[in-house]
Design a protein around this nucleic acid. Structure first.
Lengths: 206, 206
DNA sequence: TCCGGCATCCACCAGTTGGTGGATGCCCGG
DNA sequence: CCGGGCATCCACCAACTGGTGGATGCCGGA
């Protein structure tokens, strides 16, 4: 019997997941949370084997929650279950310590298999993500991943923010924004913001 | 008793929705579909009062399905239930004939109220969408297509060319490049090249 | 003929960007 | 402890960008 904690900001999704596992005696849903903070608060009480974790949630997001879980030395495995498959979403989650990464289009059977595999400590990736990661690994070393901060800055620039505006939004100086950008340009092999945005889109970073 | 048809490509979400309505005798889930085509095929057999429709689905998307429903003169009301609240998603759905538009973060009670209102033929909008529509009506969206030349210039900019370099490549003056760019910015509703590139990618122009 | 859309072009100027060459501090792993 | 990576920050400056307010010419349709 695998104990689960479901973390997702959408009530519909939480209900759907609970409903999926309820009729199967291999699994027991021990609790639910709407964001990372709630999940972490529930953790000691419910002590799940596997946490099904969404990434983009208001309040504490999934990556931060995974990091905190790891920091607390929790025994729970984290299976990310999300809509998003961009590198900007996948890599931070995997780096943070997720055991698996599934997209929400997974069938019930796929989901069950993934939970069991995650419980055994096996890595689980949806085929789409696996393909993407394999492509990334095959690519030349020029394809350094952008740091979290670099991605954040780039995302703001893509939304039309000037360096100054991005700085204001991130509560840092314009000089810092520029530094992150220049690092991103170097990693992406471009010379300016427009080209950086283009390459980021082509690589699924944005 | 309101008969429902649930249309969503995510099994989790379909299960979640079915689970939400199952315990309430005001509603009956008559069927489920993974995309527009399936939904339309089910329609005559199940004859729902309200269709809960996702928008972004592989195969036939929600907007197309709504249009087809209206074309067939179906009596069913369509309540859009989706994650996306951008104008690009909301407006086409409403224009296509959706009676309501809800986001997936709606609570169970909100959802039930919305279904009942939609059944009565009342328009339903989540507060976030209502606010956004009000804003849009105050400043109409500009979705003009870019001219061939504007696209050419934008493509070069996306490759990292400065205005000067793009001008050289196209055998025109830098002033002309700038004029095309400024026109493109206006049409895309952005203020700079980075944002223009982003929007162009999002619209499949690049 | 007139008008609108498109392409082309100019000048001026304030603001922004990218490059350069620094710097500090924190965290983590060897 | 040391080194690397990341985040943060500074100053200076040449080049570039975006905004503004013009302009001409061509083509097609009313």
């Amino acid at each position: 019997m695998i104990g689960l904690l479901i973390v997702d900001d959408h009530p519909v999704v939480r209900d759907g997941l609970r409903g999926m596992f309820i009729g199967d005696d291999r699994f027991e849903v021990l609790g639910e949370a709407g964001d990372g903070t709630e999940a972490l608060a529930l953790l000691p009480a419910v002590d799940p084997d596997v946490v099904l974790m969404d990434l983009r949630m208001p309040g504490m997001d999934g990556v931060t929650a995974i990091k905190e879980l790891r920091k607390r030395g929790s025994r729970a495995r984290v299976l990310v279950l999300t809509t998003y498959d961009t590198d900007a979403d996948v890599l931070p989650a995997i780096k943070a310590g997720a055991t698996g990464y599934l997209l929400k289009d997974a069938s019930r059977q796929e989901l069950f298999r993934a939970v069991e595999a995650a419980h055994r400590g096996e890595s689980v990736l949806s085929p789409a993500i696996a393909g993407r990661l394999m492509g990334t690994l095959r690519s030349p070393a020029t394809k350094e991943p952008l740091s979290q901060r670099e991605l954040e800055v780039l995302a703001l620039i893509a939304r039309g923010n000037s360096n100054k505006e991005a700085a204001s939004r991130l509560f840092i100086s314009e000089a810092t924004v520029k530094t992150h950008l220049l690092h991103a340009y170097a990693k992406l092999g471009v010379r300016d913001r427009a080209a950086a945005v283009a390459v980021a889109f082509e690589r699924g970073l944005l």
